[in-house]
């Protein structure tokens, strides 16, 4: 059995026990504000807007994206053009905009935590042409240490930090937005 073989080899090879360091709390001098989150997210190509500037979430989505597009969302506040409970993952290939509630935002890198429970289908935030994440403004933390302290990564079968639209720089280091996943990311703060 390779398992036993590998474990035995490790036991014979491993160094004397080293202590596990305690990760300290890194207190940034600035509080985790919406402004910092917004400017860092913008640098990664995300657009951050406030719902109240659009008189509500539904208006915001409809204003940012033209009316004749298909929307998929589990949110009740917005009309979904596709029944997520009925659809198969591959059915979502035609979706133009996915609107998904998010749990947490991270100021230092503009990342937003989204779980399977929020998406219904894991593939939804990736397969849609455009992605809208809806984030409560008071759920922005300073850095990744705080983020991992607040979430439970195995709460659901799948969770992801999304820090911008899908991108690549694999051809001569030229940045191209819209590689395999969503071509744009809008974060709406509520």
């Amino acid at each position: 059995m390779s398992k036993a073989h590998i474990l035995k080899a490790i036991q014979a090879a491993k160094p004397v026990p080293c202590p596990l360091p305690v990760v300290p709390v890194f207190e940034a001098e600035t509080p985790p504000t919406r402004e910092i989150f917004g400017s860092v997210a913008a640098q990664s190509g995300s657009r951050v807007v406030r719902a109240e500037d659009f008189v509500g979430l539904a208006t915001a989505v409809r204003t940012i994206y033209p009316k004749d597009i298909s929307i998929a969302t589990p949110l009740r506040a917005i009309q979904s053009d596709i029944d997520l409970q009925q659809a198969s993952p591959a059915d979502l290939n035609g979706v133009d905009v996915a609107v998904i509630p998010a749990q947490l935002g991270v100021a230092e890198n503009g990342a937003v935590w989204v779980t399977e429970a929020d998406c219904v289908h894991r593939v939804l935030p990736f397969i849609a042409q455009h992605l809208v994440l809806v984030l409560p403004e008071d759920r922005i933390v300073r850095n990744m240490h705080e983020a991992y302290a607040q979430i439970k990564i195995d709460d659901t079968g799948f969770g992801v930090f999304i820090a911008g639209p899908s991108k690549t720089a694999d051809i001569e280091q030229s940045l191209v937005i819209g590689a395999q996943g969503a071509r744009s990311l809008t974060i709406i703060l509520i």
């Binding site: 991270v106 240490h145 991992y148 302290a149 439970k152 990564i153 820090a163 720089a169």
Partner: peptide
């Protein structure tokens, strides 16, 4: 899981200078 805080902060910045990879996916 808490150790991911340390490593995700280092990985993308070291690799490409991004503050984070765009997708950090946790499969359970």
């Amino acid at each position: 899981a808490e150790h991911l805080g340390v490593f995700t902060r280092l990985l993308a910045r070291s690799a490409t200078g991004q503050p984070s990879t765009i997708f950090t996916s946790h499969h359970h």
